[in-house]
Amino acid sequence: MDTVKEEKTETGGEEQPYHYNRELFYSFDKEKGYSQRVDYMIPENQTIIRQQWDLVEERLKGIRYLVTSGKRSPIAWYMEKALMEIPMLAGYMEMSAWRIRWHITPMGFKQLKPRILEKYAALFGITVEALKHPDLENNLR
């Protein structure tokens, strides 16, 4: 861990959260030709990954508002939290996308049969109770 800390200061003390797996990178230099090196991700690449997770958090905020104000069902919340979209969730649930669209409305959610609720709960790795009364906290993992 000590070596990692040193690297942090080298890059101007910028925050580098991803430093536990080294990957292989190629590079080219006109004199030396092609070379490979195994290293941690460079800060620029960390920025663009960070950007994606920022968007996820932002979207979660929006969905939380919609769920608390009664415009979407908790399934919308868990779907967003699992970074899924409707076609993908439809694939996992083996249903048509239109049925999923109906389920993410509060009206459709109320009419869901226990069997389907259980299927959703199993997919998201939670209990049926948690599905009905979601804990709307913004912890991604």
Partner: peptide
């Protein structure tokens, strides 16, 4: 964000940098 998506595809998803251009040069 759109720009970030291009860059993620170019640098992140296992391309070894520069969208495989380094590997192809090698």
């Amino acid at each position: 964000y759109y720009l970030g998506q291009v860059l993620r595809m170019e640098e992140e998803v296992g391309t070894a940098g520069a969208g495989f251009r380094f590997i192809y040069g090698a």
